[in-house]
Nucleic acid binder design. Structure first.
Lengths: 172, 172
DNA sequence: TCAGGTGATGTCAGTCGCTGACATCGTCGA
DNA sequence: TCGACGATGTCAGCGACTGACATCACCTGA
């Protein structure tokens, strides 16, 4: 991440990264499927936390409540690391390929959430719809959390879910 | 698309495509920024239609209603071409890189919708949230439209918006 | 009619991401 | 002590993508 920040993403070759890590280029690709993937390690952790929390929600929780519980569960993963997240995000914003990867990751996260909802007995299309709503809330809350100085991400998530319910109730 | 379907995406080199089109590889890259981009031409058209429809919604329409109008406006773009869309989608599903590009395109579409909402005076975070909800509905409706034989995409979109409002009203 | 500008295409060489195949080496258990 | 095994190194190669320059068709204005 340091090299990416200093010299830019495509000014930093895989050979550079490998050299800095004291490895071979070939070995790099045995640890990361992709050059971009360096910035997206830990995404799977997020997914596990979310899906586990959805599964752990009380059986009588509505689909929306279950997803809200899932999304809110990622809070601890971000506590304190705001500057790190900001650096990472600023790098991502410099390069379309990285934004693309991020979009793909979030999309994948949405699919996983939908699967967790289906496991709870939620039928399609509600499962996919509600899952994607959860992702939308997460994105908006995460963005605000990055931009602010002392907002709590957990609070933001709850707040944005409320906001969305309110908008929906004001109707079409 | 024919070559992709027959031989697979990465068994088809850019040189192959260029040769089939009677062009040079270099010229290919002057028309398409990417090898993948071949399959995503027309995405900008979708974006224009949606954002225009959001802008054209009555001033007193709620944010959700404006987005619903925007998403519903893409209906005509798909009328009749179900087999073409299916072929395209089946190719995309064979390759992660293509799925990634699709996710990125939808993400971009969401940003554009949010911008249109902001132009209507909708504040953040509601603009982004509602825009992403619109994308979620579009994705679910499009998937169902592809899978079904004679569903109308416009009807599906309206129906899924209703579904989502209902879910939201059942609450957290 | 011709000089010059402009835009699309061709040509060439090069970089870099990424992969497959094979060799090497350290570790650990039989 | 030997052999299996996993992680790493080495090497060669493909293919996506880019920059620089040449070419050519077409159009325009003197």
């Amino acid at each position: 991440m340091g090299m990416f920040a200093e010299r830019g993403f495509d000014q930093t070759t895989v050979a550079d990264i490998a050299a800095r890590a004291g490895l071979t280029e070939r070995t790099f690709f045995r640890h990361f499927s992709d050059k971009r993937e360096v910035l997206f390690h830990g995404g799977s952790h997020l997914e596990e936390v979310m899906t586990a929390a959805v599964a752990a929600a009380p059986p009588d929780a509505t689909p929306l409540a279950a997803v809200a519980a899932g999304v809110a569960a990622v809070g601890p993963a971000f506590e304190g690391g705001r500057t790190g997240s900001r650096l990472r995000q600023s790098i991502i914003e410099t390069h379309p390929d990285l934004q693309e990867r991020e979009a793909a990751k979030l999309c994948h996260l949405g699919l996983a959430l939908a699967e967790s909802l289906r496991a709870r007995g939620v039928a399609e299309p509600v499962a996919s719809l509600v899952a994607d709503v959860g992702i939308a809330v997460f994105r908006a809350a995460f963005a605000q959390w990055l931009a602010s100085e002392d907002d709590d991400i957990r609070t933001l998530i709850d707040q944005y879910f409320d906001e969305l319910v309110k908008v929906a109730q004001s109707g079409l």
